[in-house]
């Protein structure tokens, strides 16, 4: 019934799913795990305060990452943080604007900004551009003209990162960037004032919402990560002694 070559991965997947379900159940039942401080996320509040003082807008972008495949977790984390920063900005009286390059994200962002700003919401707060190139050129022009006080660049970022972060730096904006996409991480670190690297971004939703289910899934992810590291170490030690330890997972 189960395809022979995929049996072991199927079993591993089921074990991981069970672990997630257990950790989420445990957290929801009142034992949520603790999560360490993430300076990049605390800096968002500071950046919003700066925008209020300066009377200039905050710009937010999730890059060109969509809601599918490997981009999905990062984009979802980016959208969660959009909701968080929008409600924070709305409560302090700052204007947050979102530039989207993925059509599916527009209605989600609209809903989030509408919820945050209520009657103060303006449709111009969301700009949709149809491609990566258009996103980059729109941002370069807009930042040059409007000189935003803060620039949030959080999501599955592609090579628009350098252009957007450079435009933000030139405009003098306080920048918070974050992605899990490897080859953009160095640019986020080098160009932004605060950065969220890899798992920090994925944990952001849990960090800002403190929702037990999210905290529970982070605990499960960490346990799986430790299991993976242990397997890698076993494999490396096995290889040193001429033993193919990868057979552990072949059945």
């Amino acid at each position: 019934m189960i395809k022979g070559e995929l049996a072991s991965t199927f079993v591993v997947l089921l074990v991981f799913i069970a672990l997630y379900l257990y950790c989420i159940y445990r957290a929801v039942r009142g034992k949520p795990p603790m999560i360490r401080k993430v300076p990049g996320l605390d800096a968002m509040e500071e950046a919003i305060g700066r925008a209020v003082e300066m009377g200039r807008p905050i710009y937010y972008s999730t890059g060109v990452g969509s809601l599918d495949g490997g981009d999905m977790p990062m984009t979802m984390a980016g959208m969660t943080l959009l909701g968080y920063s929008a409600s924070l900005a709305a409560s302090r009286g700052a204007e947050l604007r979102y530039i989207a390059a993925v059509p599916q994200l527009v209605p989600i962002a609209e809903d989030m900004l509408r919820t945050a700003y209520r009657d103060a919401y303006k449709p111009e707060q969301i700009t949709f551009v149809p491609s990566q190139v258009a996103l980059m050129s729109t941002i370069v022009g807009t930042y040059e003209r409007e000189k935003p006080a803060a620039n949030f660049l959080l999501g599955a970022l592609y090579w628009e990162t350098v252009v957007i972060a450079e435009a933000g730096a030139r405009a003098g904006a306080m920048q918070v960037g974050g992605t899990g996409r490897l080859y953009q991480v160095p640019f986020v670190v080098a160009l932004c004032d605060y950065s969220l690297i890899g798992e920090e971004l994925l944990a952001a939703g849990a960090y800002v919402s403190r929702e037990p289910s999210q905290l529970g899934s982070i605990l499960a992810s960490d346990i799986i990560r430790f299991i993976t590291i242990a397997l890698i170490i076993i494999y490396v030690i096995g290889s040193l002694f001429g033993v193919d330890a990868s057979t552990i997972l072949r059945f």
């Binding site: 379900l21 490997g70 977790p73 979802m76 899990g180 899934s217 990560r225």
Partner: peptide, 25 residues
Amino acid sequence: VIGVAIGTIAIAIRVLLGYEKAYTG
């Protein structure tokens, strides 16, 4: 790649259980 794969499973399960609502606005 491993980290993102683990994160993807986490998000899928959260969506499946109805805890992850970011994609519905």
